[in-house]
């Protein structure tokens, strides 16, 4: 019979220790984790960025990724969006009793691969097991710390009139890839999630110009919601052009079928950069050299009129307001 996670795996006793030693520490080994102390202890200097996020995506495996990869990329990206170099992550599992051990190991394997690519170490963690029905298979929380290089000041409130708005690539892949696997809604698509760690990309962009004003990864709520957040935080308007926003045909088709607007569909490996006009081309060039931003494009610019408003020039040359997402497009996509 296939090995399943039992309540005892989270009890803190023998089974817990075996699970941690065999399934986690072995796969995620690094000097800080290997000590197995109550806290990871390390030295850091400079300005730090610190963030946390919980991952409850359903299903836990989806085309292009799984909850493990998402849990690393999501937190790494949140750090990167502050301009920080991500360094250390914590990793906590809440596991529903009965999850196949092989599935958990597959997730840990993804965590290891993603952390390796992002250049971060998993330095501390926790495991809890809850009774069947109290969670859905597997929930993960990660928290992360990173160091912000000197001279970098990136914030959602730094956008200023005249700045260019750069999008790193096609939108909506993650949301549609996850939804395509949902029970009762499954449809065939070759689309995969864009889930990817963006720390490297941000470092290359900052090398091209340390003057980047704002960065944001448009996850839940999509591009429209991120742009609205930036416009409100910075008290500016943002004008974008529909024609310049890359969207894959498969995403457009799925959106038509489901009644979604791609502007509101989630991404897990994309970002918006707000950059002073004189640096925009340099940053764009640097982005296009990175594998995660080959299709990067300037999609619009920041204005002073109507603070907080996002306006889009449609393909027909008309203008319309792009509002924040209202309600939930579909729950639990990350």
């Amino acid at each position: 019979m296939e090995d399943k996670i039992l309540l005892a795996h989270g009890s803190g006793g023998k089974l817990s220790h075996d699970l941690v030693a065999k399934s986690f520490v072995k796969a995620l080994a690094n000097p800080l984790l290997d000590k197995l102390d109550d806290s990871a202890v390390f030295d850091l200097s400079g300005r730090l960025a610190f963030t946390t996020d919980s991952y409850v995506v359903s299903p836990i495996f989806f085309p292009g990724g799984d909850i493990g990869k998402l849990a690393v990329c999501g937190t790494v990206n949140d750090l990167a969006m502050s301009g920080a170099k991500p360094l250390y992550l914590s990793l906590s599992f809440i596991i529903e009793e009965g999850l196949a051990l092989s599935e958990l190991e597959k997730v840990v394997d993804s965590v290891q691969k993603a952390a390796g690519e992002a250049g971060v170490d998993i330095v501390t963690g926790d495991t809890k097991v809850v009774t069947r029905g109290s969670a859905d298979k597997l929930f993960i929380n990660t928290a992360g710390v990173g160091v912000i290089p000197e001279g970098v000041d990136i914030s959602g409130s730094n956008a200023s009139p005249g700045d260019k708005v750069i999008l790193s690539g096609a939108i909506g892949d993650h949301g549609i890839a996850v939804i395509s696997q949902r029970e009762g809604l499954s449809f065939a698509t070759k689309l995969g999630s864009d889930c990817a760690p963006l720390g490297g990309l941000v470092a290359e962009m900052l090398k091209a110009s340390p003057n980047i004003h704002s960065l944001r990864d448009p996850t839940r709520g999509g591009l429209a919601t991120s742009l609205n957040e930036l416009a409100k935080q910075s008290k500016v308007s943002i004008r974008i052009e529909e024609e310049k926003i890359p969207v894959q045909e498969a995403v457009l088709a799925a959106c038509e079928m489901l009644g979604f607007d791609p502007l509101y569909v989630a991404n897990e490996g994309k970002m918006v950069a707000i950059v002073p006009p004189e640096d925009a081309d340099k940053v764009l060039k640097a982005m296009r050299k990175n594998r995660y931003a080959k299709d990067a494009a300037i999609i619009g610019e920041v204005g002073a009129e109507h603070p907080g408003r996002v306006v889009m020039k449609t393909v027909l040359g008309a203008h319309r307001i792009v509002d924040m997402l209202v309600g939930d497009l579909l729950p639990r996509i990350c």
């Binding site: 449609t314 027909l316 008309a318 319309r320």
Partner: peptide, 9 residues
Amino acid sequence: IFRYGIRQV
């Protein structure tokens, strides 16, 4: 009509 601003054009 609204999404593409057709009334405006």
